[in-house]
């Protein structure tokens, strides 16, 4: 267990197309950090470079005080859980878990002890003699986790470990992973494309896009204050208003409307969550009020989702206070300053 530092990582297969560009991450001892992003963003590549399965074109990886950038994979002392679990089909659960210990030439008694210990922690004691083909997906996942944990790795690497499980099991397993990681005070990196999953278990999240980290922060910060358009879109914001300038007090939108919001450099868009847009009865003098007409309505259970055409563009509004409004009704919307977030491109 140790601090992991990734410095200025670059990766390119052909020298031209960069899969990773100048990527840096710093993970504290005992932290679980998620790398979140759509497929093809470079998150799995990053993990595989950290594991040593791929060689970076440039950059350094430092574990604790040791620079492991050029250490071959089998000497890195990491544990890894694969998306396909990658259990050894010809070995029993016990021997799958014991594999790494045998590689480290531990004596039989020690192996027995350690394997039994980790099997009981992961709830697999009864399955020790089974073979992978005889296990359910969830059980295979546990074995894969046990195999990674048993060597007491410096860092635990998880590559989309939950994506082959059904929804219910996924929730169960992610809690299990989090529990084990905290109990063992393990430094861990968790790669996923599922934001709910990653928010639920991470200390910090790195949102990746096109080979770069767009934002590296706590889940709360990312959820409440996404920094860039990509992050905001990826975590579910739906209203984006393009801005073209800032006059010291308010932003100027494309459609020449002034919107007051927190001042920030490099702002290209403003965003607001649908439920933070208020439908008000009468236009008051306060800032950030815009008129619009409802063009669609969807029932969401605890609220109605209105699609409203305004001079700022089409906005989505969730409302659970008013009576039901219908199509073609005119409404007045208030976009409160504190809820309007500035975004970089």
């Amino acid at each position: 267990m140790a601090k992991l530092e990734v410095k200025n990582l670059s990766m390119s297969y052909d020298g031209k197309n960069k899969i990773l560009e100048d990527l840096s991450l710093s993970i504290q001892d005992g932290e679980l950090v998620s790398i979140l992003g759509p497929s093809g963003c470079g998150k799995t590549t990053t993990l595989r470079i950290i594991a040593g399965l791929l060689k970076q074109t440039d950059g350094e990886i430092i574990v604790g005080e040791k620079n492991i950038s050029n250490l071959p994979v089998h000497k890195r002392e990491f544990g890894m859980v694969f998306q396909s679990y990658a259990l050894f089909p010809h070995l029993s659960v016990f021997n799958n878990v014991a594999f790494g210990l045998k590689m480290r030439k531990l004596d039989k008694k020690q192996i027995q002890e350690k394997v039994e210990n980790v099997l009981s922690v992961t709830g697999l004691s009864d399955l020790a003699k089974r073979f992978p083909a005889e296990l359910s997906g969830g059980q295979q996942q546990r074995v894969s986790l046990a195999r990674a944990l048993v060597i007491n790795p410096q860092v635990l690497l998880l590559d989309e470990p939950l994506s082959n499980l059904d929804a219910k099991l996924r929730v169960e397993m992610r809690e299990e992973i989090r529990r084990l990681q905290q109990e063992l005070k393990m430094t861990a990196i968790f790669v996923t494309h599922d934001q709910e999953e990653c928010f639920a278990i991470s200390d910090k999240v790195a949102v990746m896009n096109r080979g770069r980290v767009e934002q590296f922060d706590t889940p709360q910060a990312i959820y409440q204050e996404p920094k860039t358009l990509f992050v905001a879109k990826f975590i579910g914001f739906e209203n984006f208003i393009k801005v073209v300038g800032y006059d010291g007090e308010a932003y100027l939108t494309e459609s020449n409307i002034k919107l007051a919001a927190q001042a920030k450099e490099n702002t290209r868009y403003l965003t607001i969550r649908p439920r933070q847009i208020k439908i008000i009865e009468t236009a008051n003098d306060s800032e950030n009020v815009v008129k619009g007409r409802i063009i669609n309505r969807t029932y969401l259970g605890n609220s109605y989702r209105y699609t409203v055409k305004t001079s700022l563009g089409v906005l989505k509004v969730d409302d659970f206070e008013h009576d039901v409004l219908s199509r073609d009704e005119d409404v007045i919307l208030e976009l409160a300053v504190k809820n309007l977030l500035p975004l970089e491109n």
């Binding site: 594991a51 040593g52 399965l53 071959p72 994979v73 089998h74 000497k75 890195r76 002392e77 990491f78 544990g79 890894m80 694969f82 998306q83 396909s84 990658a86 259990l87 050894f88 089909p89 594999f99 790494g100 590689m103 480290r104 894969s144 195999r147 990674a148 060597i151 690497l157």
Partner: peptide, 14 residues
């Protein structure tokens, strides 16, 4: 599955 080899490398195999 090619990943089983990678799993072995990560576990300390040459």
């Amino acid at each position: 599955d090619p990943h089983i080899e990678e799993a072995a490398w990560v576990s300390g195999c040459t």
